[in-house]
Design a protein around this nucleic acid. Structure first.
Lengths: 146, 146
DNA sequence: CCGCAATTTCGTCAGATGGCGAAATGGTAG
DNA sequence: CTACCATTTCGCCATCTGACGAAATTGCGG
């Protein structure tokens, strides 16, 4: 019962549903997800943690980034059902479509630049020299220039 | 998106899942559900309202009682999926089995007596005269003796 | 080893949620 | 029409949740 409840609760949140729809076709690194959602890194991390502990997603370390993808471990017996439900849904939802469009932009930027710049509306790095402190939207590292 | 979220949220609560499992084989009146769950009438009513507005259940008036059953109206396009998921789950869950056992007891009592007595542990009316004020557990009508 | 930078954890805050009892509602039966 | 009683609504409280920023952690690259 706990597991069904966890899976349903995990999927039953707007931000987490968006995450699930984002990673349903390919694994994504946290900073990519964050760039698309436009939420604070800590918030995204929390959501991913909820999704992970409910068995809906898995993390896989790739070099210096952590990629998240749909779970395949079958740790939660209800995960498949919930994931199937979500997978078959929302493919015409405006918000989801917008996220996908945004993802396309994000995917054009190499990880190394993306994470440092955190472009939320305009992904094109404004050529602000090397990894500029010009365009970040979701703060952090704001004291790094001191 | 709102509808998927609503359906998942509605089903992703312990008490509401129990309700869904209870009415999945036959419609039940509110007081029957309340007797099995052991929650206050107002609480059960709230849960039913959430389930109803998410399109998972429907109410049907039957004489002086209101029966709730699994929705068939297709008002929420995701309801069927969520309901199927729940229907196929928890059939071995201890709490659910206990609820079912409890339901068997409750079903033995005619509605007219059940609602007035509200037996939560022992369904057998302790022959406390006519619709006694002896066994109720989930209060209300406590000031009726004044 | 050191430092950097991606990610997570912690602390906090506002708003949502689940539970209850009391009071309102509304349909049935007299 | 009235009274009754199943159900709902309302107001309240405790707890949970989602969001943030700041600080801790962790793993690569030097």
């Amino acid at each position: 019962m706990r597991q069904l409840e966890a899976a349903l609760k995990a999927a039953g949140d707007r931000s987490r549903t968006r995450i699930l729809k984002l990673i349903e076709t390919r694994d994504l690194c946290v900073c990519q997800i964050q760039a698309v959602l436009g939420l604070a890194p800590s918030t995204v991390s929390k959501h991913l943690s909820v999704l992970r502990s409910s068995g809906l997603v898995e993390d896989r370390r790739e070099g210096r980034w952590i990629h998240y993808g749909i779970a395949s471990s079958g740790e939660n017996p209800y995960a498949d059902g919930v994931l199937a439900l979500v997978r078959g849904a929302l493919d015409r939802d405006p918000k989801i479509l917008e996220d996908r469009r945004r993802l396309q932009e994000v995917l054009r930027t190499p990880l190394a630049e993306l994470c440092a710049v955190m472009p939320v509306q305009s992904v094109s790095v404004p050529s602000a020299s090397r990894r500029g402190r010009g365009a970040r939207k979701a703060g952090r590292r704001d004291r790094a220039h001191a």
